[in-house]
């Protein structure tokens, strides 16, 4: 069980949206995390600086929140290590093929009303739901 958090989730979602809007306004870029990561893998993207800076900021955010407010977000990852590795490999391969993930397609692309992003988002939302159903209700969990 996790607690239903409509207010925090809405506020957090608005912050994610704000970052996407600011990245477009200042840098003219889509805030897609998988695309940024890809630009930092060899062969490196020519302007890797803003990508690296964005990701460093994203990593540092929970630390800053903890230091400033003493609040640490709930975190509960129950997936066994082997399955984390398998899941990670699949996510990496999948987002490379699809040219985007939840941030790039799900938020930025859908906001642009891009047909590719709407189709991609539907595709991964359905397959995630099916996967969670199979793991939790057919296999009976890890």
């Amino acid at each position: 069980m996790t607690e239903f958090t409509p207010i925090l989730s809405l506020a957090g979602g608005a912050m994610i949206g704000l970052s996407a809007v600011l990245l477009m306004a200042l840098h003219g870029r889509i805030a897609g995390i998988s695309g940024m990561l890809q630009g930092l893998l060899p062969p490196f993207a020519k302007d890797w600086g803003w990508r690296a800076a964005f990701l460093v900021g994203a990593i540092f955010a929970p630390v800053l929140i903890l230091v400033m407010t003493g609040w640490r977000p709930a975190f509960d990852a129950s997936t066994p290590t082997l399955w984390l590795v398998i899941g990670g490999l699949i996510v990496g391969a999948g987002v490379q093929l699809a040219s985007g993930c939840t941030s790039g397609h799900g938020i930025c692309g859908m906001s642009r009303l891009s047909a590719r992003s709407i189709v991609a988002t539907l595709s991964f939302m359905i397959s995630t739901a099916v996967t969670v159903y199979v793991i939790r209700h057919i296999i009976g969990g890890f």
Binding site: V91, A93, S103, A120, F124
Partner: peptide
Amino acid sequence: GAALFGIGWGIAGFC
């Protein structure tokens, strides 16, 4: 690719 990503997301819980 998106469907594949969803399988991984459903396994690991991380996007």
